[in-house]
Design a protein around this nucleic acid. Sequence first.
DNA 1: TTGTATGCGTTATCAA
DNA 2: TTGATAACGCATACAA
Lengths: 339, 339
Amino acid sequence: MGPTIRDVAQKANVSISTVSRVVNNPLAVRKEKRDRVLVAIKELGYEPNPFASGLRDKRSMTIGAIIPDISNPFFAALLRGIEDVARENRNNVIICNSDQDGSRFKEYMHFFYKKRVDGIIFVSESITPNHFECFQKVNAPVVLAATESLMYDHPFVKVDDYRASFDGTQFLIKNGHRNIGMISGSISDPIAGRPRFAGFENAMNENGLLLQKEQVVFGDLKYDSGYQAMGKLIAKTPDITAVFAASDEMAMGAISFLTERGIEVPQDVSVLGFDNIPAARMIRPGLTTVAQPIYEIGHKSASALFQWVNTGVKPDSIMLDHEIIVRDTVIRKKTESLV
Amino acid sequence: MGPTIRDVAQKANVSISTVSRVVNNPLAVRKEKRDRVLVAIKELGYEPNPFASGLRDKRSMTIGAIIPDISNPFFAALLRGIEDVARENRNNVIICNSDQDGSRFKEYMHFFYKKRVDGIIFVSESITPNHFECFQKVNAPVVLAATESLMYDHPFVKVDDYRASFDGTQFLIKNGHRNIGMISGSISDPIAGRPRFAGFENAMNENGLLLQKEQVVFGDLKYDSGYQAMGKLIAKTPDITAVFAASDEMAMGAISFLTERGIEVPQDVSVLGFDNIPAARMIRPGLTTVAQPIYEIGHKSASALFQWVNTGVKPDSIMLDHEIIVRDTVIRKKTESLV
DNA sequence: TTGTATGCGTTATCAA
DNA sequence: TTGATAACGCATACAA
């Protein structure tokens, strides 16, 4: 193993407490000795053993992140934001892939408990009483990223999903679309589901567009469900001119379905996504979408968590701005002058 | 803090060593006492403090992973494989995003050293003497994933890039293509660059197709460079009927360029990718590609690492099979009967 | 089979 | 300003 504090002390001809001081509170040591210690540290390549410190201080310098699936580009980008902040704070992050398998949640929290994480970032899923109970047991600060809890009072960092969806719908309407379908997330999903649906519904209503049941189909935010949902939607409402999908992946699924059926995007039907995942700009036609600042959500939520851990004062929640990224999949609807 | 081994001992009316034994080597304790201890553990919710164990045993139960960029879907999938194995082994993984910024590498290794990682997985980049030196200093087993080292003797898990590229080219040729362009990775990249280029070149040669300089353009494996490379390629060799890109992202960039120029894929030119990232199946036309078993590379490399860490015997390298996934972007070239 | 005692490397308390 | 020492929680060598 590497050199210990004792090796340094010996080399610098001081006591181990002095070495510890120059590492943690250099000002408390007279310059002469301090320099001697610094030299010894450098020469030996000494690094404080984090296990010894952790054992004493009960701080792990580690945070936990619960993420649905890191191989999903949305979460990968978000995680990247978390990681970067953790690194700045000389912390690690332990990642747990929840796989939307609620049953494993308890296990993960247990894992965090075992590992004595200093704080937790909980990404994207909605909070159940079960979650809450587990949070209490680990007894570590919890910050929510891209989700929020109505019932429990955890700080969160996210976009205003309702507002974003409302604006997205408005955007479609401003472009002349009247007959708009929606591929929504599950209505029982209080984040990406209900609010985005509600934003759509209200925007339609406020524009005097009456919403029919047939215009909405539900998916699970992933590609395949978008593909299938589009099939159902087009069967029920063949005359739509635009589709609003609650996630980019579902939008991509919808586009695939449409394209395979010879329905051209955007000439025949426009498609609006939600998220702005990296792939959105890589496909042709480029996906027009309601963008969340994904990296920033991760970054800000981690910053908030560290602030909390370090100062002990619970941070405020943050509502980040969304933005409509105009690419190619939404066009202004031709006026129906011929009709 | 939580209960300690002493609390359990007291509750079960045994010594702490007995408690320690039932945790680490249950068979060494008489059943009667063992059960008493087990009950106490459960009732108290006792968890061994990893810092105390780590301090004593000098094992961190943590591995480090150096990955170019987790927000890249290829690496995200690979990481997922690593994570899953780590979890099975009750280990964490600390992730460092190298961002192909070699200068930060030393810093990361230092971080690993500080954190006393038990082993390291090094993903995808090529090994320089600088890397090697750092590896030596941390003095932990290193397994290479999706890369290998000719100079240094680290176990690796990867695909045979040369062979895979050779087969991909062969596939294009079998489909009637003669005039084939390549968008290659950098020739100085000993993994995704040179071998894939060599596979292409040799397959062409073996089929009596003489390769012109103009048929090859180089990129950095990412989307934008694929886009630009396609521009150069089409300018230099307007009569190609197929393009082989050394990564799916570059293939997507190439398709974007082509599509924007009104050149249809695959009718006008076929495109073959490499990797089989998740997006490959989500775009239309679906990307035909030479698939690497990405998740499996991560999984197997982590398994090898743990085997090494646990037994002390260096594992063998593993060459995994590639596979050509046929989707829509490559078509059989129409015979030129009209010419 | 079980218990006692020691050391792992740090930091903080206390005395000098 | 500095140094000696106790404590953090655990696993094992050794003694019983």
